[in-house]
């Protein structure tokens, strides 16, 4: 009984530690007073200011575009790579897996500066494209990571059975293989998408002047001193993340029930 109470208290304490900061931001986003020490009354003005801030809106658009495109490209490249890796010999497979692990295991700052050096060397124009290329690079490993187990679990006879029944390779891929590995592809996409949304460090080193994502925008703002607009932004992001994750969590659990 006592241990049960202790457990509850412990869980509650960690919960407070994790959520108090976010809760504070949400409260402050409605604070009339610019000072965080005083409650100056309820207001929506920071939200209005945020929505009329063209720079922030542009950063939001950039962030979403980069996340979407990089996740899509990573999904295509990652999935076909998995198909090929499944047929490879052990040596070439482990080399490729090793290379794939580099961006995931290496410190982000090193990945960031290495890409920066690359773009500098080739005198590329730093901006949207360089950020996008970098994001695709660190997204592919996440796709491979989540598709590979699915492909390994797949019965290779399925594909051969489809060919045996007269399907062409492409038809067999889209009708037999892809549906089988689809959950892996989907979770790879979602992982890549969120990684890209959340990234700051690599974007910081590969972005150019005038092109910002939300992360780099926040960083620049915070360095100047926190503006309550940022609180409003946090609140909005927190709520969207919450909704998104609830939706995602609903999906697989629905599937499971169907399986039962």
């Amino acid at each position: 009984m006592i241990s049960k109470i202790l457990k509850r208290v412990y869980i509650a304490l960690i919960f407070v530690f994790l959520y108090a900061p976010m809760f504070t931001l949400i409260v402050l986003s409605f604070n009339q007073s610019k000072s965080r020490a005083k409650w100056g009354g309820f207001t929506f003005k920071w939200y209005l200011a945020l929505f009329s801030d063209r720079v922030v809106i542009q950063a939001l658009i950039n962030t979403l575009l980069i996340a979407l495109i990089s996740a899509l490209v990573a999904c295509v490249i990652g999935t076909i790579t998995c198909l090929a890796m499944n047929r490879m010999g052990n040596v070439s497979k482990s080399i490729l897996t090793g290379v794939t692990n580099i961006p995931m295991l290496n410190a982000e700052i090193v990945t960031g500066i290495s890409l920066m050096l690359l773009f500098l060397f080739f005198k590329a124009k730093f901006g949207f494209v360089t950020i996008l290329l970098s994001h695709i690079t660190f997204n592919i490993p996440y796709v491979i990571l989540s598709v590979m187990p699915r492909i390994r679990k797949m019965n290779p006879s399925n594909y051969e059975a489809a060919l045996d029944l007269g399907a062409g390779p492409l038809y067999a891929f889209f009708k037999v293989v892809l549906p089988d590995i689809w959950p892996g592809v989907l979770s790879g996409f979602l992982m890549a998408f969120t990684m890209s949304l959340d990234d700051f460090i690599i974007t910081h080193f590969t972005k150019g002047p005038g092109v910002d994502t939300l992360s780099t925008k926040i960083y620049a703002q915070v360095k100047k001193g926190i503006n309550p607009e940022m609180y409003a932004l946090s609140t909005l992001i927190f709520i969207s993340v919450l909704i998104l994750l609830i939706l995602i969590n609903r999906m697989p659990s629905g599937d499971k029930e169907k399986e039962k």
Partner: peptide
């Protein structure tokens, strides 16, 4: 899943 910078800002 919350933005890293916003968490730190908090």
């Amino acid at each position: 899943w919350m933005n890293f910078l916003l968490r730190t800002m908090a």
